[in-house]
């Protein structure tokens, strides 16, 4: 059973994407925890660790991703966690490249299909098990 945390850092309330993804992952047989909106990086990281999730998905549309995502990665590292992180939202190309360089496994822009994300997650764990 793959356990996923879908988190919404920052203050924007645009949770349509986060909720659609959460639901699609559920329908793909995963256990999905959703944090709700307005979460600080500290809350997200502690939740990911306490819930012992396999993967963390971060949805952000306010434009604050270059502040918030690196902070999340830093906190995970500080706490000795290796939970993989993917990001969804309006992320310009060069920012996406930078986030991947910092350790984000994938950045999904607007228009990404949920099946693409599901396949990617499933594939990630199949490969990790080999």
């Amino acid at each position: 059973m793959i356990k996923v945390l879908i988190a919404k850092p920052g203050l924007d309330g645009h949770d349509r994407g986060a909720k659609v993804i959460a639901r699609a992952l559920r329908d793909a047989g995963m256990e999905v925890i959703y944090t709700g909106i307005r979460q600080t990086p500290e809350q997200i990281v502690q939740t990911a660790i306490d819930e012992d999730v396999d993967i963390l998905g971060v949805s952000i549309l306010s434009g604050a991703h270059m502040k918030l995502v690196p902070r999340i990665l830093e906190l995970l590292k500080e706490k000795g966690s290796r939970i993989p992180v993917f990001v969804g939202g309006i992320i310009p190309e060069d920012d996406a490249t930078e986030l991947k360089r910092l350790g984000v496994i994938e950045v999904y822009g607007p228009g990404t299909s949920t099946s693409e994300i599901i396949e990617k997650i499933k594939g990630y764990f199949e490969n990790a098990n080999i």
Binding site: D27, M30, I33, G36, Q39
Partner: peptide, 17 residues
Amino acid sequence: SGGALLGDRIRMQSHAT
């Protein structure tokens, strides 16, 4: 699907840390 949406935490997140 056997999957689940676990959303109870939403209301308790101020205690996450």
